[in-house]
Simulated scan of single mutants.
Amino acid sequence: MNHLLKECALSEQCSYLPGLEQTTHYKIIEKCSIEYNELLIERGWRRFGNMFFRPMCTGCSACESIKIDVNGYVFSKSEKRVIKKNAHLKTLIRRPSASQSHIALFEKYHEFMHNKRGWEQQPINIKNYYMSFVNGFNEYGYEVLYFDGDKLIAVDLIDILPNGVSSIYFYYDPDYQHLSLGKYSMLRQIIYAKTNHLEWIYMGYYVKECRSLAYKGDYKPYLTLDGSPKEGDEPLWYEKV
């Protein structure tokens, strides 16, 4: 377990803020254990496939790792309405998979986001989808599938860890915007965590000035990670006042 295949740092154009450069630290880990996954996530890393990464940008702290305090979370009236209006959807949680239905939905969503927010479009096929979202799921990776009747309309990729749920990626059918599926999937994660006595929802990076990530600040109370602690250091999470 925890066989480190490669570790490196790469500099590239910032994914979140225009005109900036970002430096990202990568670890490629084969058969990462659930304990090591949680150790890394608690220190601000994210997982795609068997790749873990986190930004390490000199002089910039725009990317903040945040986690929702599940025990302190109270659903608002509007959130309860979102849950109610999606009560007709069928939900299936299982190990991650790759199919033509996944690819078609993924492409439809990203074409929509390209037109709406200028997201860069990159070709996707079953092989690279598998490498990003299926490979490396080990004992903790799952996909939550949402269906309207027999039609797949959303996919939520998560890790279920001993103390919380780590959100990896979510995509949906733009024809169902009226259902607020992104919000619904996050609320379902919180419900799952409450039901199973898990403390945290790890949301990844909150960037206030990035439209695609700013929504994460709406889920309060949440805690913010102080800096980029090393693996041997105790992570300090604090609640912003």
Rank of each mutant, 00 (worst) to 15 (best):
F75H: 06
Y73A: 03
S99A: 08
A104M: 09
E107L: 13
K84P: 12
S101R: 09
L105Y: 09
R94Y: 04
Y73H: 12
R81Y: 08
H102V: 03
A87Y: 11
F75M: 05
H102S: 09
L92D: 00
K77M: 10
S97W: 13
R94Q: 07
L89A: 04
R95P: 01
R94E: 05
S78K: 13
K80I: 06
K84M: 12
S99D: 09
F106Y: 12
L92Y: 02
P96E: 05
P96T: 04
S99M: 12
L89P: 05
K77V: 08
R81I: 02
F106Q: 03
I103S: 10
L92Q: 01
I103Q: 09
S101M: 11
S78I: 01
K90P: 01
T91E: 03
V82L: 09
L105Q: 04
H88D: 12
K77T: 07
S76Q: 12
H88A: 05
K80R: 15
K84S: 11
H88S: 07
V74F: 15
F106I: 02
S101E: 15
K85V: 00
V82I: 15
H88Q: 07
S78C: 09
T91G: 01
L89Y: 08
Y73D: 07
V74N: 13
A87F: 13
K80E: 10
H102Q: 06
L89D: 02
L89Q: 03
A98M: 06
I93R: 03
S76F: 13
Y73F: 15
K85Y: 13
Y73N: 04
F75D: 03
F75W: 15
S78G: 08
L92C: 01
I83E: 13
S97G: 06
S101C: 07
K90R: 04
A104V: 04
K80C: 11
H102T: 00
H102L: 05
V74R: 14
Y73S: 06
K77N: 13
A104N: 11
S101A: 15
S76A: 10
A104D: 14
K77H: 11
K84N: 14
R81T: 01
E107R: 14
Y73Q: 11
A104F: 15
R95T: 00
L92I: 00
P96R: 06
K85R: 10
A87Q: 07
S101P: 04
T91P: 02
E79A: 08
K80T: 02
H102M: 12
L92T: 00
L92V: 00
A98D: 08
R81S: 03
Y73G: 09
T91N: 01
I83H: 07
S78Q: 11
L105K: 04
I83K: 12
K84D: 13
E79T: 01
N86Y: 10
N86W: 14
K84L: 14
